[in-house]
């Protein structure tokens, strides 16, 4: 259990203090909550609240760069943030929580019901990291999440997203405040459809087979998609309090179908 708190004033100071037994604390909605694994495992917490440099939002050549400490509410209120990212931020229903939760905190926590990760993934977001050596590196969000351990001591400085991309998202939960069983996003790029989503208790997934199916046959039927997901052996959903394996598979299939139709401008 953490007994020490460091109030870092700069990203370099924060990274310098980071060890394997320390954890960064940004907005605090994940680390400070009762029963948090992060707070339970870390000896030292490094608070980033005083790092003012991480709170800016900049716009340049079709891209928006969001400082890692920007809150969800700043994202919702900023005129520069693209609509798809605002929509994902508004999945967090509580305004008081939106005043605290940060974009990078949501990425770093990597929860299976993350509000932003699916949208950022299909948007091809690029993350800038500050390393102990003082250098900064830029990696794609998917690369960051897949190799999170190797970036464990690095600090997210900013997240860059494209302004002009056709992207739609959907989130399913019992109530606006509940954990979502599925959060899914789809984007239409020059290469075709791109789909990703978080399934509760499974993790963040990239739906390659669904992308392939939609790209090969844009008029594929809903029944074919439902059958495909139902029979998919690579998807490891299980029965739990959020729903049965069959329910989750059905939900992924119909959501993918609906998002695809929405991207094509059709009625859902």
């Amino acid at each position: 259990m953490a007994t020490k708190l460091i109030l870092a004033k700069t990203p370099a100071e924060a990274v310098d203090a980071k060890t394997s037994s320390a954890a960064f604390i940004a907005g605090g909605t994940e680390v400070n909550r009762l029963g948090s694994d992060i707070a339970g495992e870390a000896d030292v917490l490094i608070s980033l609240k005083k790092c003012g440099a991480l709170k800016s939002i900049e716009r340049d050549a079709g891209y928006v760069t969001v400082g890692s400490m920007c809150t969800f509410q700043q994202i919702v209120e900023s005129e520069w943030i693209p609509a798809y990212l605002k929509e994902a931020a508004l999945f967090m229903a509580s305004r008081t929580k939106r005043n605290m939760a940060t974009i990078a905190g949501n990425i770093a926590a990597n929860r299976s019901d993350s509000y932003l990760i699916p949208a950022l993934t299909v948007a091809g977001a690029v993350i800038e990291l500050c390393r102990k050596s003082g250098e900064t590196v830029r990696v794609g969000i998917q690369e960051y999440l897949e190799n999170k351990e190797s970036y464990g001591n690095d600090l997210i400085v900013s997240v860059t997203v494209p302004e002009d991309i056709r992207l739609v998202s959907k989130r399913y939960a019992n109530t606006a405040q509940s954990h979502a069983v599925l959060t899914m996003s789809a984007a239409l790029t020059e290469e075709g459809i791109y789909m990703a989503g978080g399934v509760k208790n499974v993790g963040q997934l990239h739906f390659c087979d669904l992308e392939k199916a939609f790209n090969e046959d844009p008029d594929i039927s809903e029944e074919a998609i439902i059958k495909m997901v139902r029979d998919c052996t690579g998807l490891h959903t299980e029965d739990d309090m959020f729903g049965s394996d069959a329910y989750k598979r059905y939900l992924i299939a119909v959501t993918a179908f609906d998002l695809h139709r929405k991207l094509k401008g059709k009625e859902v």
Partner: peptide, 19 residues
């Protein structure tokens, strides 16, 4: 647990006192 901090509402249960 909502309180107003510098004019905005926050959940004080997940807000560190030192902040």
């Amino acid at each position: 647990c909502t309180v107003i901090i510098n004019g905005e509402g926050f959940n004080s249960c997940i807000y560190l006192a030192v902040w």
